[in-house]
Amino acid sequence: MNNKNKISLVIGGMCILLSCGIAIQVRTITGIGSTTGSNNTENTLRDSVLRTKEDYDNLYEDLDKAEKLLEQERNNATENNTELSELQEEIKTKNTQLGLTDVTGKGVIIELDDNHSVSANSIGLLTDPNSMIVHDSDILYVVNELKNAGAEAISVNDQRIVANTVIECDGSVIKINGVKVGAPFTIKAIGMPETLKNVYRTQGYLWNLKYYYLLEVDFQTSENITIPKYTGTYKFEYAQANN
């Protein structure tokens, strides 16, 4: 009997390990949202995409850590030197202006989405269904108006808008900073809320998008907006400063 107890105990322990492993595996796979398809090529491709994405995330984390370390080292090095610490402050300000740091502040959040309420039957003969979806030009116009209203930092679906940002059409999605983003679009802007409100003025572009083109537009001010930093790089090879 003692022997049998021991056997049950060991098998029970194995079952704990086993079902624990199965549960973790199932959760990992469902978390990724990928299931094994019937097509082998498709599976291999999906597998390599997921692996590359994970590698990218890991490297990005490393980069973040390295940047923090650099920041710390700079702080340490300039601690006891007024001139250097002034320069350090300047680097910080310039980085913020270039969009290389996360920023927080008050501003506005605009939600832009395609018109989901129309169908092929309900749409009029003369209405162009193409006008019922958000285009790259709409985003460009809105971003432009926000800049005009004095926005200090803008992001579209967490892609920071900087000096060399490109907003372009890429089939059914829009490419911003080379990253594909799709509807619904969340445009965040930090700046003086009173002036930024003018973007949503009557007969303004955004207003027209809502009431003339019948897109789904939501505009609200917020006291606390966080805009992520620009993750790309600035290249300056041909332009030289004249001084």
Binding site: I11, G12, I16, L18, S19, C20, G21, I24, R27, L50
Partner: peptide, 21 residues
Amino acid sequence: AIILGCVIGAIIGVNAPIIPY
């Protein structure tokens, strides 16, 4: 023992952190 082990393991597994892909 098997049933108990499976149940306990599943509970642990559901609450354990997921692993990288």
